[in-house]
Nucleic acid binder design. Structure first.
Length: 685
DNA sequence: AAGCAATAG
DNA sequence: GGTTCTATTGCTT
C-alpha cells in the first residue's frame, strides 16, 4: 500500500501495522476485504491411501517407499522413530517390523487426491490444489452467506478445533467469520472422512500463507484457527526462513549472503536493500510473506496443465538405455493422456546429469511442439541435450506432455495431425531380440490410437478402441489391427503424409530409435520383420475402461474458458491397477507414421544444401551424424527410389543456446534439428 | 509464446 | 540442500 520513499526505521513494524490497519479499517467500513481461507492437509497421505487399500496395514508400522527412501509413513511407524524422507536402511534399523509398500507409482494417490479436491469443490468452487495432499479454499462468500441466512446468535457460535495461542476464545464481532470458517473446516474434514475415509488437518485464517502455516499447529487430524492478532506470534515462532512457504532454497542462499537467516532478520531488513538484490516484486513479496501478509488469491486450478512421468536411477549412460527408459515412461504417460481426453501439443524431455559437485540437482530440458513421433521426438530432444558420442551419466529422465488442448473438432493442424488414422496394420516385434524378454513392442499407431482416437472422435466405434486397447490376446505379432481410417472423416487430409510412410513401411519401427540400436540388433530386427516374432503378450488384466466420472462436472475451468467439455473426468480413475504391471511388460515401439509435412523454409534450405538427392524429410543434422558409409549408402538409395516421406517441421530457427551448442558439437546449422526419417527409408528398401 | 528456474508437497 | 515424482508459476528470452 503506502510504500512511500521514506526508508526509515523499521519496515517490519510498518508492514505489520499497515496490515493491521487495513484489517481494522475494513472492519469499520466494509470488512469485505477480509477473507476467510481454509487450508486442508491430509495426514501422511500416501500411507493413508495404502491403509485404505489394505486395512490390515492400519495397525502396523507402515512406510511408503520410493527407491531407497521412505517418503512418508503412518503414525504407528512415527511412534517408532521412523520419519519422512528417511532412508530405508535407517528406517528398518529404527523399526525392524516396518512394513514397506512401494509408492513410485502415483496412480492411486493421484486419484484419491482429485476425489478430495472434487469433494471440497462440491461445497465451494474456489479450491486450489497444492500438491496431491493439500487444498486451499476461499470460503469468504460462504461464510458471509451463512452469517446472513442463518440468524446466528453469536452466543451460539464457538470455534471448532484449536485457536492458535489460546486455550479458549469467545466469539465476538471481530472474529465471527473466522469462527464460522472453523465450523466449515470441521464440516469438510468430516465429509472427507465419511465419504473418502481420509483424515487431515485444517487451518483457518485470512490468507493462504497463514492458513497453511497454522494448519500444522496440531497434528494429526485436528484443525487450528489463527486470529489476526496472533499473526506476529505465529510468524515469530517459525524457526527459520525455510519454514516460510514461498521462500525456497535459492532465495535463502541469497538472503544468507545478506546475513539474513531468521524470519526476524528478513522482517526488519530495509526494503530498498532487499530490492537491490531481488528486484521490486520479489523483495516486496518475500518481506510480506515473513510478515504474514499474502494477498494471493485462491485460484481454482481445473484439470492439470501438464502430465509428466519420470524415473530416477543410479546411472544411465547409453542411448539404448535412454530409449528403453523413455519408452517405459511414454507408456504410462500416453495411457494417462488417453484417459484425460485432451491432446498434448508439446513434449518435453528432461534429464538430470550426474556431476560430482551437484549430484541431484541440475535438471536440463528441451521441449518441442507438435509431438509427431513421441519416442523419436524424445530421442531427438535427448540428442539435442546430450552428446552421445561423449560419455554421459544420467540419473533421471522425465517426459512431460504439456500445452494440453481440449478436444478440438478437427481444425488445428496439430489436432488433425494427431488424429490421423489410417495407419496400416501394426506389426509387433518380439523384443527378445534386444534383451527385452517378454516385452511387447507396440506400434506407434497403436499408441496414437489409444491415446487420441477413442475419446476425441465420437465417430469412433468403441469396439475398435477396445480391441486396440486390450493388448495381448488380440494383438499378436503381425495380427491385423483394426483400421480406423474410414470413419475418421476430417482427419484424413494430408494424404501426402501417409503415402510412403504408412503403406510402404514393412514394420512399425521408429527410425530414430532403430538407428540407436547396436548393429547386430538392427539386423536381427530386420529379419524379424519378415518372420513375425511371437512375443509374449502382455497380460494386462482388464480392457480399457473409461474412467468412471467422478462428477467432474464441477470443474468448470475458470481459466480454461473454452469449453473443456470432454476431458470430462480429469481425475484418473484407473480402471485397473495396471500401473505396476504395465511397467513390467510392455514396451511401446513407435512407428514412423507421423511424419509431418515440412513447411519450414529454413529446413528445406538446409536440406538442399545437404544434398539434392536427399528426400525432403531428411534432417541434415541427423544425416550428418550418420557414419560416412551409411550416408553414402543412403544417397545411393535416394537416387534410385525417391521415397515420399515427410518430415516434421516446426521449430526451426532459434533453438540454440549455450548448452545446446555444447551438446551438439559441430553442426551449428542444426536449425530445426528435424527428425531422422532417414532410417525409415533405409528399412523400406 | 517458449524455455527454464524456482518452489512445493 | 536429505530424496522422489510430480505439478505450477513466473522470470527471461
Amino acid at each position: 500500500m503506502d510504500k512511500d520513499e521514506e526508508s526509515d526505521g523499521n519496515d517490519w513494524d510498518r508492514s505489520l501495522e499497515t496490515d493491521m490497519m487495513e484489517i481494522e479499517g475494513s472492519c469499520n467500513a466494509t470488512l469485505k476485504s477480509q477473507r476467510v481461507v481454509l487450508h486442508f492437509d491430509l495426514d501422511c497421505f500416501y500411507a493413508q491411501v495404502e491403509m485404505i487399500r489394505n486395512p490390515a496395514l492400519r495397525t502396523k508400522p507402515l512406510g511408503i517407499q520410493q527407491k531407497n527412501i521412505i517418503v512418508t509413513c503412518n503414525y504407528v511407524a512415527r511412534d517408532q522413530g521412523v520419519n519422512k524422507l528417511m532412508s530405508v536402511s535407517d528406517a528398518l534399523e529404527k523399526c525392524p517390523q516396518l512394513v514397506l509398500v512401494k509408492g513410485e507409482d502415483l496412480t492411486h494417490y493421484r486419484e484419491m487426491s482429485y476425489k478430495v479436491t472434487e469433494l471440497l469443490m462440491s461445497h465451494c468452487p474456489l479450491v486450489e490444489r497444492l500438491g496431491f495432499d493439500e487444498n486451499y479454499m476461499d470460503v469468504t462468500e460462504m461464510v458471509e452467506r451463512r452469517l446472513k441466512e442463518t440468524i446466528q446468535e453469536i452466543s451460539d457460535l464457538s470455534f471448532r478445533g484449536h485457536v492458535y495461542g489460546y486455550d479458549c476464545v469467545a466469539v465476538d464481532r471481530e472474529n465471527v467469520r473466522l469462527a464460522i470458517g472453523s465450523v466449515m473446516a470441521e464440516e469438510m474434514r468430516q465429509a472427507i472422512y465419511t465419504t473418502l475415509g481420509l483424515t487431515g488437518c485444517a487451518g483457518v485464517a485470512c490468507n493462504k500463507l497463514l492458513a497453511k502455516l497454522v494448519s500444522g499447529s496440531f497434528k494429526p487430524n485436528q484443525q487450528t484457527t489463527l486470529l489476526p492478532q496472533s499473526t506476529a506470534e505465529l510468524m515469530g515462532s517459525l524457526t527459520g526462513l525455510s519454514k516460510v512457504p514461498g521462500i525456497g532454497y535459492k532465495t535463502r542462499e541469497k538472503l544468507k549472503v545478506l546475513g539474513l537467516v531468521s524470519v526476524r532478520d528478513l522482517q526488519s531488513f530495509p526494503l530498498p536493500d532487499l530490492v537491490k538484490e531481488f528486484g521490486e516484486g520479489m523483495a516486496q513479496r518475500i518481506q510480506n510473506l515473513v510478515c504474514g501478509v499474502d494477498e494471493s488469491p485462491v485460484t481454482p486450478a481445473g484439470p492439470p496443465q501438464s502430465l509428466s512421468d519420470e524415473d530416477s536411477f543410479k546411472k544411465i549412460s547409453t542411448p539404448e538405455e535412454v530409449l528403453r527408459k523413455i519408452e517405459e515412461l511414454l507408456i504410462n504417460l500416453t495411457e494417462r493422456m488417453n484417459k484425460d481426453g485432451r491432446q498434448p501439443n508439446t513434449l518435453r524431455l528432461t534429464v538430470r546429469r550426474y556431476t560430482s559437485t551437484n549430484r541431484w540437482f541440475n535438471r536440463e530440458s528441451r521441449s518441442s511442439d507438435a509431438v509427431p513421433q513421441l519416442l523419436a521426438l524424445s530421442m531427438k530432444l535427448f540428442h539435442k541435450m546430450i552428446d552421445a558420442h561423449q560419455p554421459f551419466h544420467l540419473t533421471l529422465l522425465n517426459v512431460c506432455f504439456s500445452n494440453l488442448q481440449a478436444k478440438s473438432s478437427g481444425k488445428s493442424s496439430i489436432t488433425s495431425f494427431f488424429s490421423q488414422k489410417s495407419l496400416s496394420a501394426s506389426q509387433e516385434v518380439d523384443s527378445d531380440l534386444h534383451d527385452l524378454p517378454t516385452k511387447t513392442l507396440l506400434s506407434k499407431a497403436d499408441v496414437l490410437h489409444k491415446i487420441w482416437t477413442p475419446i476425441n472422435h465420437k465417430s469412433q466405434p468403441p469396439k475398435s478402441v477396445k480391441s486396440l486397447i486390450t493388448p495381448k490376446s488380440s494383438a499378436l505379432p503381425n495380427a491385423p489391427v483394426p483400421v480406423y481410417s474410414e470413419e475418421t472423416n476430417t482427419d484424413i487430409k494430408e494424404p501426402s503424409l501417409m503415402s510412403g510412410v504408412c503403406f510402404s513401411l514393412p514394420a512399425d519401427v521408429d527410425p530414430e530409435v532403430f538407428r540407436l540400436l547396436p548393429d547386430h540388433i538392427q539386423r536381427e530386427l530386420m529379419l524379424s520383420f519378415t518372420n513375425k516374432g511371437s512375443g509374449e503378450v502382455n497380460n494386462r488384466p482388464t480392457e480399457y475402461l473409461y474412467p468412471a466420472e467422478h462428477s467432474l462436472s464441477d470443474f468448470k475451468q475458470p481459466r480454461t474458458t473454452g469449453t473443456c467439455e470432454s476431458a470430462a473426468s480429469y481425475n484418473q480413475s484407473s480402471a485397473s491397477n495396471d500401473s505396476e504391471l504395465c511397467k513390467d511388460h510392455s514396451i511401446t515401439h513407435l512407428n514412423p507414421e507421423l511424419i509431418t509435412p515440412t513447411k519450414n523454409p529454413d529446413f528445406q534450405q538446409a536440406n538442399q544444401a545437404l544434398h539434392s538427392d536427399a528426400p525432403a524429410n531428411v534432417d541434415p543434422y541427423v544425416f550428418s551424424q550418420l557414419p560416412a558409409d551409411v550416408q553414402s549408402e543412403l544417397l545411393t538409395e535416394w537416387r534410385q527410389q525417391r521415397p515420399v516421406l515427410k518430415i516434421p517441421s516446426k521449430h526451426s530457427s532459434k533453438t540454440s543456446n549455450g548448452r545446446n551448442k555444447k551438446a551438439t558439437p559441430k553442426n551449428s546449422q542444426m536449425k530445426g534439428a528435424k527428425l531422422a526419417v532417414v532410417l525409415s527409408v533405409f528399412l523400406v528398401s
